[in-house]
Design a binder for these strands. Structure first.
Length: 113
DNA sequence: CACTTGACTTATT
DNA sequence: TAATAAGCCAAGT
Protein backbone atom coordinates (compact mmCIF):
# COMPACT_ATOMS: atom_id res chain seq x y z
CA UNK A 1 0.00 0.00 0.00
CA UNK A 2 2.57 2.68 -0.08
CA UNK A 3 2.22 2.49 -3.84
CA UNK A 4 -1.09 4.19 -4.68
CA UNK A 5 0.11 5.08 -8.16
CA UNK A 6 -1.56 3.14 -10.92
CA UNK A 7 1.08 1.84 -13.24
CA UNK A 8 -1.29 -1.00 -13.95
CA UNK A 9 -2.38 0.60 -17.17
CA UNK A 10 -0.32 -1.90 -19.10
CA UNK A 11 -1.49 -4.69 -16.83
CA UNK A 12 -5.08 -3.75 -17.55
CA UNK A 13 -4.34 -3.88 -21.24
CA UNK A 14 -2.75 -7.31 -20.86
CA UNK A 15 -5.78 -8.55 -18.96
CA UNK A 16 -8.29 -7.29 -21.51
CA UNK A 17 -6.29 -8.59 -24.46
CA UNK A 18 -5.96 -11.92 -22.77
CA UNK A 19 -9.73 -12.00 -22.32
CA UNK A 20 -10.39 -11.67 -26.02
CA UNK A 21 -12.20 -14.86 -27.09
CA UNK A 22 -10.75 -16.92 -29.91
CA UNK A 23 -12.05 -15.94 -33.29
CA UNK A 24 -12.63 -12.33 -32.20
CA UNK A 25 -10.66 -9.13 -32.46
CA UNK A 26 -10.69 -5.69 -30.90
CA UNK A 27 -9.13 -2.29 -31.41
CA UNK A 28 -6.61 -0.28 -29.42
CA UNK A 29 -9.12 2.50 -28.90
CA UNK A 30 -11.73 0.08 -27.54
CA UNK A 31 -9.33 -1.13 -24.88
CA UNK A 32 -8.14 2.37 -24.12
CA UNK A 33 -11.70 3.60 -23.93
CA UNK A 34 -12.60 0.73 -21.65
CA UNK A 35 -9.78 1.88 -19.41
CA UNK A 36 -11.19 5.38 -19.54
CA UNK A 37 -9.17 7.24 -22.16
CA UNK A 38 -10.01 6.73 -25.81
CA UNK A 39 -7.13 9.01 -26.75
CA UNK A 40 -4.64 6.82 -24.91
CA UNK A 41 -4.86 4.31 -27.71
CA UNK A 42 -1.16 4.86 -28.36
CA UNK A 43 -0.43 3.62 -24.88
CA UNK A 44 -2.23 0.41 -25.71
CA UNK A 45 0.10 0.07 -28.64
CA UNK A 46 3.06 0.77 -26.35
CA UNK A 47 1.70 -1.82 -23.97
CA UNK A 48 1.69 -4.33 -26.79
CA UNK A 49 5.26 -3.42 -27.56
CA UNK A 50 6.16 -4.15 -23.96
CA UNK A 51 3.85 -7.17 -24.16
CA UNK A 52 6.81 -9.04 -25.52
CA UNK A 53 7.70 -9.40 -21.86
CA UNK A 54 4.46 -11.28 -21.36
CA UNK A 55 4.09 -14.93 -22.45
CA UNK A 56 0.49 -15.19 -23.54
CA UNK A 57 -0.56 -11.87 -25.01
CA UNK A 58 -2.58 -12.57 -28.19
CA UNK A 59 -1.62 -9.22 -29.64
CA UNK A 60 -2.60 -10.51 -33.05
CA UNK A 61 -6.20 -10.13 -31.90
CA UNK A 62 -5.66 -6.42 -31.45
CA UNK A 63 -5.80 -4.25 -34.53
CA UNK A 64 -6.52 -0.65 -35.34
CA UNK A 65 -10.01 0.70 -35.77
CA UNK A 66 -10.02 -0.09 -39.48
CA UNK A 67 -9.46 -3.77 -38.73
CA UNK A 68 -6.09 -3.43 -40.41
CA UNK A 69 -3.12 -5.36 -39.07
CA UNK A 70 -1.05 -2.33 -38.28
CA UNK A 71 1.23 -4.15 -35.85
CA UNK A 72 1.95 -7.11 -38.09
CA UNK A 73 5.46 -5.82 -38.63
CA UNK A 74 6.25 -6.17 -34.94
CA UNK A 75 5.74 -9.90 -35.01
CA UNK A 76 8.61 -12.17 -35.92
CA UNK A 77 7.50 -12.11 -39.53
CA UNK A 78 5.37 -9.59 -41.48
CA UNK A 79 2.82 -12.31 -42.13
CA UNK A 80 2.90 -13.88 -38.65
CA UNK A 81 -0.09 -11.87 -37.41
CA UNK A 82 -2.24 -12.76 -40.38
CA UNK A 83 -1.30 -16.42 -40.06
CA UNK A 84 -2.31 -16.39 -36.41
CA UNK A 85 -5.64 -14.70 -37.14
CA UNK A 86 -6.45 -17.08 -39.97
CA UNK A 87 -5.43 -19.92 -37.69
CA UNK A 88 -8.22 -18.85 -35.35
CA UNK A 89 -10.83 -18.68 -38.07
CA UNK A 90 -10.55 -14.96 -38.78
CA UNK A 91 -10.50 -14.12 -42.46
CA UNK A 92 -7.85 -11.63 -43.43
CA UNK A 93 -7.59 -9.98 -46.82
CA UNK A 94 -5.02 -7.40 -47.83
CA UNK A 95 -3.81 -7.11 -44.22
CA UNK A 96 -7.34 -6.27 -43.18
CA UNK A 97 -9.84 -8.35 -41.21
CA UNK A 98 -12.97 -9.38 -43.10
CA UNK A 99 -16.27 -8.71 -41.30
CA UNK A 100 -14.29 -6.92 -38.63
CA UNK A 101 -17.52 -5.25 -37.49
CA UNK A 102 -18.94 -8.66 -36.67
CA UNK A 103 -15.73 -9.99 -35.20
CA UNK A 104 -15.23 -6.84 -33.18
CA UNK A 105 -15.08 -7.72 -29.51
CA UNK A 106 -16.09 -4.78 -27.40
CA UNK A 107 -14.80 -5.05 -23.81
CA UNK A 108 -17.34 -2.46 -22.79
CA UNK A 109 -20.16 -4.80 -23.71
CA UNK A 110 -18.56 -8.13 -22.96
CA UNK A 111 -16.90 -6.95 -19.76
CA UNK A 112 -19.37 -4.21 -18.99
CA UNK A 113 -19.72 -3.52 -15.33
C1' DC B 1 17.61 16.53 -19.23
C1' DA B 2 15.13 17.77 -23.88
C1' DC B 3 13.56 16.22 -28.20
C1' DT B 4 11.72 12.62 -31.31
C1' DT B 5 9.18 8.61 -32.36
C1' DG B 6 5.37 5.47 -32.00
C1' DA B 7 1.02 -1.42 -32.59
C1' DC B 8 -4.04 5.11 -32.51
C1' DT B 9 -8.22 7.93 -32.71
C1' DT B 10 -11.07 11.94 -33.24
C1' DA B 11 -11.99 16.41 -34.93
C1' DT B 12 -11.39 20.03 -38.19
C1' DT B 13 -10.33 22.08 -42.71
C1' DT C 1 -14.59 12.50 -49.41
C1' DA C 2 -9.70 13.12 -48.42
C1' DA C 3 -5.99 15.23 -46.10
C1' DT C 4 -4.13 17.63 -42.09
C1' DA C 5 -3.96 18.93 -37.09
C1' DA C 6 -4.25 17.95 -32.53
C1' DG C 7 -4.38 14.93 -28.38
C1' DC C 8 -2.47 11.23 -25.46
C1' DC C 9 1.66 9.34 -22.64
C1' DA C 10 5.70 6.53 -22.36
C1' DA C 11 10.22 4.96 -23.92
C1' DG C 12 14.24 5.63 -26.71
C1' DT C 13 18.09 8.57 -28.35
Amino acid sequence: METPKNNDFFEQVYQVVHLIPKGRATSYGAIAKYLGSARSSRMVGWAMNTAHSRPEIPAHRVVNRNGMLTGKMHFGSPTRMQELLEGEGIQVENDQIINFTELFWNPQEELKL
